[in-house]
Amino acid sequence: MNYLAGFTLLLIAILVMVAQLKKHVPNPEELILGNWTEKAWQYEKVSNPNELHRKHSVDTMAQSVKDQLGKHLIIHSAETWHFNSHGKLLLRGADTVKMVNWKVKGRGHILELEYANQVIEHYNITELTSTRLVLNFDSDIQVKGIAKLTFDNLDRVTQIQQ
């Protein structure tokens, strides 16, 4: 009986410890809040070897690159992304502003965007720190491959510059 109590207590203690530790590590839902500015749109992988040159595109912010990679996505016209704590994301472009709903799913590795017409898009959160956000998504309209979208946190950059 002592063994039983000992084992059970040990396992519960481990579970409580992990839950406590989690409180001290930044939560992706909180880290993502704020203003993010697009830094680069790139191909990370292409399915067709003939398209390899696209991985080395020089101008990573050209509208042509964005159109090629994400024309089928609503985000392709945005330049700055503002995530607020109420689950709304403001996509600001050169002459457009769009509001969508955002959620972080899975273990904190998937960003789900839901548009007003209930269209849902999923992006892999590959990297998320207080200064940098990297999203990956499948690009399969013109060139099959995995696209990479890099952001800088505008609020942090401004803080650092000041």
Binding site: K22, N27, R107
Partner: peptide, 10 residues
């Protein structure tokens, strides 16, 4: 990514 590490570990 320690947050994910802890989530997956749990």
């Amino acid at each position: 990514n320690y947050y994910q590490v802890l989530v997956v570990a749990s």
